[in-house]
Design a protein around this nucleic acid. Structure first.
Lengths: 161, 161
DNA sequence: CGATTCCGAAACTACACTGGTTACAGTTAT
DNA sequence: ATAACTGTAACCAGTGTAGTTTCGGAATCG
């Protein structure tokens, strides 16, 4: 049921935004506007990205966040590790019966399989970079996948484009 | 944070248990004893496995659950689909700004990547059967060692478009 | 038949995580 | 100093999970 939190999606969104505004600091307020959430939510995620060394943040007038690495040097796996401190993707049940063969051994077997499944998922994330995401977004802009994309630049980009 | 629920682990546990007691019906009470949880929790999961056609359940005296398929014909992907009705592994953020390039196109891009990651994970689960799990459990019973679970699986496709 | 054994499902609880919000202290440029 | 930022704590509502109790229904057996 409960999926991986949308922090991952928001983080990639923000990083793509920073890749778009590569040369200028972006405030949490503006990022929140693009994501359509609260600035504090963005700042919480920026804190995780900063701890992971993916962005640098500066307080004060004219401050904001900037990418700390090149977009092609940030994979979605980096982002995943930064914002999802979960160590295991699958939860194990806590205390199976130690007096039967199944209960006393199932956890180790499950752990092995689940770990491999987790790694396979991370393998995909590790091969996609923020630069890839940004490029795909721009391709959709050009391809007209979203109607009204022509004036979208003027609407959101209020600073030097 | 929030991992995939332990229903998956419990389900594989009970299916391995049923593979062990292949010829006799097992009551939810006994399975709950092996898993170390409440019988109602087991019955809830058995309901999902029954709906998926993995087990058959019989009420009344001498009743209980039995495998409806051969253990080698039940993959962990079958179990995953039975007990986790989640359609997507990663959550997307709900309503990004439609007036900027990033916000109006990021969701489609994210959906593609996240879908591939999910499929890679499911690919691993699809290559492990209840028979595999049961065999590994028995090997641990005999060996007593915590050997690696890596056995019969190839790396899932980690290609990105 | 009626008692026993078993499942199915509803209802309720406790707990944890998520995402949104307000509030306030700290930092920086002008 | 003031204004513009971040960082963080605190609180809230909504949601999912897992455990528990309780009841009704189905199947078996004496």
């Amino acid at each position: 049921m409960s999926a991986i939190s949308s922090r991952m999606a928001v983080a990639v969104h923000v990083l793509a935004y920073l890749a778009w505004r590569r040369d200028e600091p972006v405030t949490s307020e503006r990022m929140a506007g693009s994501v359509n959430t609260n600035a504090v939510v963005v700042r919480r995620i920026m804190g995780a990205l900063r701890n992971a060394g993916l962005v640098s943040v500066q307080p004060g007038v004219g401050g904001g966040a900037q990418l700390a690495r090149e977009p092609h040097d940030i994979t979605l796996l980096d982002v995943y590790r930064a914002v999802e401190e979960k160590e295991e993707l699958f939860a194990l049940h806590s205390q199976p019966c130690r007096h039967c063969d199944i209960g006393s051994n199932i956890r180790q077997v499950l752990q092995g399989v689940f770990c491999q499944a987790h790694h396979a998922m991370q393998g995909v994330l590790g091969q996609v970079t923020i630069a890839d995401v940004f490029r795909q977004v721009q391709q959709q802009v050009r391809g007209g996948a979203c109607a009204g994309a022509a004036d979208s630049l003027a609407a959101a980009g209020t600073q030097h484009a």
